[in-house]
């Protein structure tokens, strides 16, 4: 599904420096041939998001567990239609942020707003999809029963559920396992079902805590394709990951280290700013552990 909105971008040819005008849709990558020297290259258009609509607003948020500070005075705004990646090593505070935004943890200091409502707010919960780090599905029920249950607690009607179940099972490639007990599925299948359970009620804001851990490369690419299609529909996706290479799919990433947001911006921006070729190098540069 593509948005009917075309953008123009000026690029200069790396070899002959000719200025070229490219046209494509937001979020797309197009092949461009230089009109003077014939060099073929790729131009990526940034994905668009609605900067006027703030979906998540975090203000001076701090969370401590005893003497340990998991999140330290975090300020962050995420807009509608973004795929925002929270990046950082284990223990950098990614999951804590997600849990606070889902109202599973209460902040020690500071505040957060979700879809315009200050937390805690139960009434926005039906618009939120959450996939925890644990598989978090019922092992003693079938695939179908799990989807039925999670759809049910969001008040979906039987017809809605049937339609959506079909769509989700096709997406996560579990159609032929529909009536299998979850405990008999492989780890990757459980993971896919967990994602389907988080998305079945068509949320407008989705929190995915490390959704691609233990997922094979082929399926991982499919996942990202789906997340991008969600974003194009105006759904905001917030993802945590410690796979830096994946984060290039995000419209924006926040690099976290020991509870601090050390950088925030578009992946290309961060790479350009640090003069590095990958986000991994950018992260190491920003933490002072690597020279460009």
């Amino acid at each position: 599904m593509k948005v009917p909105c075309f953008l123009q971008k000026q690029v200069s040819c790396p070899s002959c420096k000719t200025i070229l005008l490219c046209t494509s849709a937001a979020g797309e990558t197009v092949k461009v041939t230089c009109s003077s020297c014939g060099l073929v290259g790729k131009v990526t258009f940034d994905r668009l998001f609605d900067a006027s609509s703030k979906v998540v607003e975090i203000h001076n948020l701090t969370k401590t567990f005893g003497t340990f500070t998991a999140v330290d005075t975090l300020n962050l705004t995420i807009f509608k239609g973004e795929i925002y990646g929270l990046l950082g090593p284990n223990g950098s505070g990614k999951t804590t942020i997600i849990k606070i935004l889902c109202d599973l943890l209460r902040p020690t200091a500071g505040s957060a707003k979700i879809l315009g409502h200050p937390l805690p707010c139960k009434s926005v919960m039906d618009q939120i999809g959450y996939m925890p780090q644990d598989t978090a599905i019922y092992l003693d029920n079938t695939v179908h029963e799990n989807l039925l249950f999670f759809g049910g607690i969001y008040g979906m009607s039987k017809e809605q559920l049937e339609k959506k179940e079909h769509e989700m099972l096709t997406f996560v490639n579990l159609m032929e396992w529909r009536d299998s007990l979850v405990s008999t599925l492989s780890g990757g299948m459980k993971h896919r079902l967990s994602l389907a359970c988080a998305l079945i009620h068509e949320p407008t804001l989705v929190f995915l805590d490390e959704p691609t851990v233990g997922v094979d490369p082929e399926l991982r690419a499919a996942f990202w394709g789906y997340f991008e299609s969600l974003a194009r529909k105006g759904i905001t996706v917030i993802i945590t990951t410690h796979y830096m290479d994946e984060a290039d799919h995000c419209t924006r990433v926040g690099l976290l280290r020991q509870g601090h947001l050390i950088a925030d911006g578009r992946p290309n921006e961060l790479k350009e700013k640090t003069g590095t070729r990958s986000l991994e190098e950018a992260f190491l540069f920003l933490t002072g552990r690597k020279q460009p």
Binding site: D103, L104, S123, Y130, D134, A136, F150, Y154, C197
Partner: peptide, 11 residues
């Protein structure tokens, strides 16, 4: 299993 967390994030 984490299902309780998921329920608590639901309506």
């Amino acid at each position: 299993n984490g299902t309780l967390q998921r329920l608590l994030v639901s309506p």
